[in-house]
Amino acid sequence: MPEQTELCWLLASVTAHGDLNRMHQFKEKSDAQRELVSAGLFFYPVLQAADVLAFRCDEVPVGEDQRQHIELMRDIAERFNARFADGEELLTVPEHSIPQVGARIMDLQDPTSKMSTTSASEEGTVYVLDQPEQIKRKFARAVTDSDDPPRIAFDPSKPGVSNLLDILGACKGITPEEAAAELADARGYGDLKGAVSEAVTELLAPVRERYEQIRGDEAQLEAILARGAQRAREIAEVTVGEAKAAMGVGPTG
């Protein structure tokens, strides 16, 4: 929606260059894109802030890797309110909602790197629409360690095993330590991988089924998206209008 882009530009007036330069994801991605580190990549956190602030969201569910982005978003909203709204909360200052378990899921093939759709290997990433046999294969090939005998424990020195326990805990609503305790009688890492595979498959099954139902009626899906976009735009139009009025930019009549 154009309102998000417009608000992004308005928010630039209260966004510090130094803050953007310190963003962890910018540093990581710019290191990987040495041939062209685009201004869009540098400025993306401001657009992300506009995506949230335009709709007056008060809570944003994110993973641990997005904590810094939410903190910047809060800073931008607070600066805008202080500078242009006499301290009133014209822009809602959002809180982050980060889960206690599963806040940072790691790549199955490289448990020192975050699981991502842009991973070098698809075998390291589980997709929401993966079929059960794909999920089973990916977890069967997940990296663990060479401890002999195998030790199933949530331990920083065991990133592969700890990642699997984190995933299992997130799926079952328990802590990784509790997940490890449930596998106290496991015969080895194969049992751990099987338990995680089963839990993930069970968790994603209703999501995949619902997706297939929705995709079966393209016209209804498009209608739902159109209604949602209209509702969202109505909210964003008010936010942008109030922000422009507070800044004294744009038409006044």
Rank of each mutant, 00 (worst) to 15 (best):
3 E>W: 02
5 T>E: 09
9 W>V: 14
9 W>T: 07
11 L>V: 04
12 A>P: 00
12 A>H: 12
13 S>T: 12
15 T>A: 01
16 A>Q: 11
16 A>I: 11
16 A>S: 07
18 G>S: 12
28 E>A: 14
40 G>V: 04
40 G>H: 12
42 F>T: 08
43 F>S: 13
45 P>V: 07
46 V>W: 11
47 L>D: 13
51 D>I: 10
52 V>N: 01
55 F>H: 14
57 C>T: 08
58 D>R: 15
60 V>W: 14
63 G>F: 12
63 G>T: 14
63 G>Y: 14
66 Q>R: 05
67 R>I: 03
67 R>C: 00
72 L>C: 07
74 R>T: 06
74 R>I: 13
77 A>S: 08
79 R>W: 03
79 R>Y: 04
83 R>H: 13
83 R>T: 14
84 F>Y: 15
88 E>S: 10
89 E>M: 11
95 E>Y: 12
95 E>P: 05
97 S>I: 07
99 P>C: 05
101 V>H: 02
104 R>H: 12
106 M>A: 01
113 S>W: 00
115 M>Q: 05
115 M>A: 06
117 T>W: 13
117 T>I: 13
119 S>Q: 03
122 E>W: 06
125 T>I: 00
127 Y>D: 03
129 L>R: 13
130 D>A: 05
135 I>T: 08
135 I>Y: 14
136 K>G: 11
144 T>K: 05
146 S>P: 05
150 P>I: 04
151 R>K: 14
154 F>N: 09
154 F>L: 06
157 S>V: 14
159 P>V: 14
160 G>M: 03
164 L>Q: 10
165 L>F: 03
166 D>S: 09
172 K>E: 13
175 T>M: 13
177 E>R: 15
179 A>T: 07
179 A>E: 03
181 A>G: 11
182 E>F: 10
183 L>G: 04
184 A>M: 03
186 A>C: 15
187 R>E: 09
189 Y>N: 08
190 G>N: 15
194 G>H: 15
195 A>I: 01
196 V>K: 06
201 T>F: 04
201 T>A: 07
204 L>P: 09
211 Y>R: 11
219 A>I: 03
220 Q>R: 11
222 E>N: 02
222 E>W: 00
227 R>M: 11
227 R>Q: 15
229 A>Y: 04
229 A>F: 09
231 R>E: 08
239 T>N: 02
249 V>C: 11
253 G>S: 12
